[in-house]
Design a binder for these strands. Structure first.
Lengths: 112, 112
DNA sequence: AAGTATACATAGATGGCCGAGGTTTGTCAA
DNA sequence: TTGACAAACCTCGGCCATCTATGTATACTT
């Protein structure tokens, strides 16, 4: 199932920081990795991702370095910072709270 | 915890239809009811709700009737339609899919 | 040599939500 | 009875996150 973009809205940064908490990654890789893990339900657009990455860097939540791969291609690898981990923890907590509350409302109503 | 508005974004209609699936309600009541059930984490604004309700009515997902309460005050009561229940089912399914996928990404990354 | 995939980037459009304001009606205290 | 306040409804302008469209450059494939 393709997820509506308005639902995605707000959780994109959480997803990106989560990816980076596991390993260093470059932008394009994040897109393909998210698509792979979600069976293409998360179809993050480049026009969405790159501005967000620049913003995260400006906030000091991630750091960047250029690295040449074996194939000779140069990529920008992003790494989460200590500050980024703290931000991730906060966003995780917010997500869990949000998820529980929505579930509570959705499930509380009597069925038809 | 107050939930960031961008996280809320996209789930508002799901929440409203969920409320209405249990009982007929009027707009102002939906706001107070959501706040009550979420311990004020969901602080839905009037400027958000009323346009959505008009939209749902235009789509035929809810129906409206004016009803006078015992106190003499006239309110607009909204009721979910059959079409609305089908839309709610679809959105519920989408929500569950989304929730699982986000959890999977958030939890899959190796801890620090 | 040409086409496709990789990889990064930005500008303008879109759409959901909020802030700020307005109106009417009922309640309650001074 | 007047004034203040809460309930209940409404709309408009703006913000902000995301998408669309487009552009650039490099590597791989045929």
């Amino acid at each position: 199932m393709k997820i509506d973009k308005s639902l995605m809205s707000g959780s994109t940064t959480l997803l990106i920081l989560s990816l980076l908490s596991g390993e260093e990654m470059y932008g394009y890789q994040m897109i393909t990795e998210l698509a792979r893990r979600s069976n293409h339900a998360f179809d993050l657009k480049e026009g969405t991702l790159y501005p967000i990455l620049h913003g995260l860097e400006a906030e000091g939540l991630v750091s960047v370095r250029e690295k040449k791969s074996e194939e000779g291609r140069t990529r920008k690898y992003y790494r989460i910072t200590r500050k980024g981990r703290r931000a991730l923890d906060a966003r995780k907590e917010e997500w869990v709270t949000f998820r529980k509350l929505v579930d509570a409302v959705v499930n509380s109503a009597a069925p038809a």
